[in-house]
């Protein structure tokens, strides 16, 4: 299987504090990879490094087939990112947001127009079209932010806790969007707090105190820890944490 992300011995230190302690994992093209861990385990640090916003202290990293030290520009064109904080412009309308992000990724006017119509139709936003983003319900904002993150059809999309604070129905709809995107061949790298969401992933890794403690499909992990749910697996592992949040 084609490898989308390859991480070997990645270390990130802030002074004496080791945020990421020799991470090793691979993510395959087209899979949904869940990146789990308690608060402060080092998830956001790792995702920032993989997106090229932060540099690792050491380690070998390949993202979308490129070395991120040497080909940062090529990596950037091949990935999408939805940050933990909400990442659309509040004071612009839906169409203006789509137009802006499409423009940044170098899409043509025509494609942007087409995408805008497509998103508005898919998300049933016809009545919201002219509204500023600030006036939209959170669930719609979140779905729109995801659509915008994949507007340039990236090989990999990174989602940093995309569903926090959203109601269960919207979360379900959000995951349907993720599945559709993955079915098109996009690799989805997602962090989450919700263990039911972990069950939706093809494979998950669980980070504790900066290290990856477990990695596998949800059913493998449940067998390995003889647990009935991912929640039990997670609690079993996270209990070992010594770091205070």
């Amino acid at each position: 299987m084609e490898i989308a992300i390859s991480v070997k011995n990645m270390v990130k230190k802030f002074g004496d504090f080791v945020a990421n302690d020799h991470l090793n994992f691979e993510v395959y093209q087209g899979e949904i990879f869940g990146f789990l861990g308690a608060n402060g385990a080092g998830k956001t640090t790792a995702i920032k490094i993989l997106c090229g916003i932060s540099s690792p202290s050491s380690g070998e990293l390949m993202v979308a087939g490129y070395n991120i030290y040497k080909n940062r520009d090529k990596v950037k064109k091949s990935i999408g990112y939805m940050s933990q904080k909400f990442s659309l412009y509040d004071d612009l309308s839906i169409a203006e947001n789509i137009e802006f992000y499409g423009g940044i990724y170098g899409l043509s006017r025509q494609i942007i127009k087409q995408k805008t119509a497509e998103y508005i139709h898919e998300l049933a936003l016809e009545s919201y079209e002219k509204m500023r983003v600030i006036d939209l319900p959170l669930g719609i904002k979140q779905k729109l932010a995801f659509s915008v993150a994949v507007i340039h059809q990236p090989k990999i999309v990174f989602l940093d806790e995309p569903t926090s604070g959203v109601d269960p129905i919207t979360r379900r709809q959000f995951w349907e969007m993720i599945y559709r995107e993955a079915a098109n061949g996009t690799t989805v790298f997602v962090t989450t707090h919700y263990m039911d969401e972990a069950e939706y992933c093809n494979r998950v890794s669980i980070m504790v105190d900066g290290r990856i403690e477990a990695l596998g499909t949800p059913s493998e992990l449940k067998n390995q820890y003889s647990a009935s749910s991912m929640e039990e697996v997670f609690i079993h592992l996270a209990r070992k944490a010594t770091r205070i949040d």
């Binding site: 920032k48 916003i53 990112y81 904080k85 990442s87 412009y89 509040d90 940044i104 170098g106 990174f158």
Partner: peptide, 13 residues
């Protein structure tokens, strides 16, 4: 503050 800066930094701009 809004988090849009991160998204911009990830993008090719």
């Amino acid at each position: 503050e809004m988090g849009t800066m991160e998204v911009l930094l990830v993008s090719p701009i």
